[in-house]
Amino acid sequence: MTEYKLVVVGAGGVGKSALTIQLIQNHFVDEYDPTIEDSYRKQVVIDGETCLLDILDTAGQEEYSAMRDQYMRTGEGFLCVFAINNTKSFEDIHHYREQIKRVKDSEDVPMVLVGNKCDLPSRTVDTKQAQDLARSYGIPFIETSAKTRQGVDDAFYTLVREIRKHKEKMSKDGKKKKKKSKTKCVIM
């Protein structure tokens, strides 16, 4: 069974824990209790493949930012979460993405942009803004509501699919490099 290491990042209060708990335990946590770091595991079937999701729910508070490099190193894919009623959390996505790329030393890291709290009427981040940002990053965008469960499975499952595509691409690139290195030079 394939294991996928997913990391949920975003500013404090955007609903990272609520999304994760909704996926794992099928219930909505409405009281806000700032996370330092929590880890969850769940076995699911995605596109006919049974897999184990190892999900790291991270601290959004700035005082825990020193811990970010460590979990970013171990993560295979990242859910970059903002709240649709919090423009600052949307603007912060850029910083999370840049930090992930720096730590992973790669421009090509599996990510999904997630606009959470889409059940709320007080939207300050337009869907088109988020779609445009995701398009500019070359990553999928999904709106979710941890409260109603809308888009929750889709967000995590899409990230797994992005990781699969990335692994497939990397193995193809690896095979191309191996083929090239088999060419021999004969000096007579």
Rank of each mutant, 00 (worst) to 15 (best):
T2F: 10
T2I: 09
T2Q: 11
Y4V: 13
Y4G: 05
Y4H: 11
K5N: 12
K5A: 04
K5G: 07
L6K: 02
L6C: 09
L6W: 11
L6T: 07
V7S: 12
V7D: 08
V9Q: 06
V9F: 14
V9D: 01
A11D: 13
A11I: 13
A11F: 14
G12W: 11
G12N: 15
G12C: 07
V14T: 12
V14D: 15
V14P: 09
G15I: 01
G15L: 01
G15C: 01
K16W: 00
K16E: 01
K16L: 00
S17K: 00
A18I: 03
A18P: 02
A18N: 10
A18S: 07
A18K: 03
L19N: 15
I21E: 02
I21A: 03
Q22T: 12
L23V: 09
I24W: 02
I24Y: 08
I24P: 00
I24H: 08
I24F: 14
Q25N: 15
N26E: 11
N26R: 13
H27W: 15
H27M: 15
H27E: 13
F28G: 00
F28V: 01
F28Y: 08
D30M: 10
E31F: 03
E31Y: 05
Y32C: 02
D33C: 02
D33G: 01
P34M: 03
P34G: 01
I36L: 05
E37P: 02
D38R: 00
D38Y: 00
S39V: 15
Y40T: 00
Y40E: 00
K42D: 05
K42R: 11
Q43Y: 03
Q43E: 12
Q43D: 12
Q43C: 05
Q43T: 13
V44H: 09
V44D: 07
V44A: 09
V44M: 15
V44L: 14
V45M: 13
V45S: 12
I46A: 12
I46Y: 11
D47S: 08
D47T: 07
G48K: 10
E49H: 12
T50L: 13
C51H: 13
C51Q: 13
C51D: 05
C51M: 13
L52F: 09
L52T: 15
L52Q: 14
L52A: 13
L53G: 07
D54G: 01
D54I: 00
D54M: 02
I55A: 04
I55C: 05
I55L: 05
L56N: 13
D57E: 00
D57I: 00
D57P: 00
T58K: 00
T58R: 00
A59H: 01
G60D: 01
G60R: 01
G60A: 02
Q61R: 05
E63P: 09
Y64T: 11
S65W: 05
S65D: 11
S65C: 05
S65E: 09
S65I: 07
S65L: 04
A66K: 03
M67S: 11
M67E: 12
R68D: 15
R68Q: 14
R68I: 15
Q70W: 03
Q70F: 10
Y71N: 14
Y71L: 15
M72L: 10
R73H: 15
R73N: 14
T74L: 07
T74C: 10
G75D: 04
E76K: 02
E76N: 06
E76C: 12
G77C: 09
G77F: 10
G77N: 01
F78D: 00
L79Q: 03
L79W: 02
C80A: 04
C80F: 14
C80L: 12
V81H: 14
F82Y: 09
F82D: 03
F82R: 00
A83R: 06
I84E: 15
I84A: 13
N86K: 10
N86E: 09
T87A: 13
K88Q: 12
K88D: 15
K88Y: 01
S89Y: 02
F90E: 11
F90Y: 11
E91P: 02
D92Y: 04
D92E: 13
I93T: 15
I93G: 04
I93L: 11
H94G: 13
H95N: 13
H95K: 13
H95D: 12
R97S: 09
R97N: 05
E98R: 14
E98Q: 07
E98Y: 03
I100C: 13
I100S: 07
K101T: 08
K101H: 15
R102W: 15
R102Q: 11
V103M: 14
V103I: 14
V103T: 15
K104T: 15
D105W: 02
V109W: 07
V109E: 02
V109T: 13
P110Y: 01
P110G: 02
M111Y: 03
V112Q: 01
V112C: 08
L113A: 11
V114G: 01
N116D: 14
K117L: 15
K117M: 15
C118A: 12
C118Y: 10
D119M: 13
D119V: 08
L120V: 13
L120F: 13
P121R: 06
P121N: 12
S122N: 14
S122H: 08
S122C: 07
R123F: 06
T124D: 09
T124G: 10
V125Y: 09
T127Q: 06
K128W: 04
Q129L: 06
Q129G: 14
Q129R: 07
Q131K: 08
Q131R: 08
Q131N: 11
Q131D: 10
D132K: 09
D132T: 05
D132A: 05
D132Y: 05
L133A: 05
L133F: 05
A134Y: 04
A134M: 10
R135L: 09
R135D: 14
S136E: 08
Y137G: 08
Y137F: 06
Y137N: 10
Y137P: 10
G138I: 02
G138V: 04
I139R: 06
P140V: 01
P140W: 00
F141L: 09
F141V: 10
F141C: 11
T144H: 05
S145R: 12
S145I: 15
S145Q: 02
S145F: 11
K147R: 08
R149S: 05
Q150F: 03
Q150P: 13
G151L: 10
D153Y: 07
D153S: 08
D153P: 06
D154M: 06
F156C: 05
Y157D: 05
Y157G: 09
Y157M: 05
Y157F: 10
Y157L: 08
T158I: 10
T158G: 07
L159E: 02
L159M: 13
L159T: 07
R161C: 12
R161P: 01
I163M: 11
I163V: 07
R164Y: 05
K165D: 04
H166K: 11
K167V: 05
K167R: 06
E168A: 09
E168H: 05
K169P: 15
K169N: 11
M170S: 14
M170C: 07
S171I: 02
K172S: 12
K172W: 07
K172T: 15
K172V: 11
D173H: 07
D173N: 12
G174F: 03
K176N: 13
K178V: 11
K178E: 07
K178S: 06
K178A: 07
K179R: 04
S181D: 10
K182W: 03
T183F: 11
T183K: 14
T183I: 06
K184T: 06
C185D: 15
C185M: 15
C185K: 15
C185S: 13
V186F: 13
I187T: 10
M188D: 15
M188E: 15
M188I: 05
M188W: 06
M188P: 15
M188S: 12
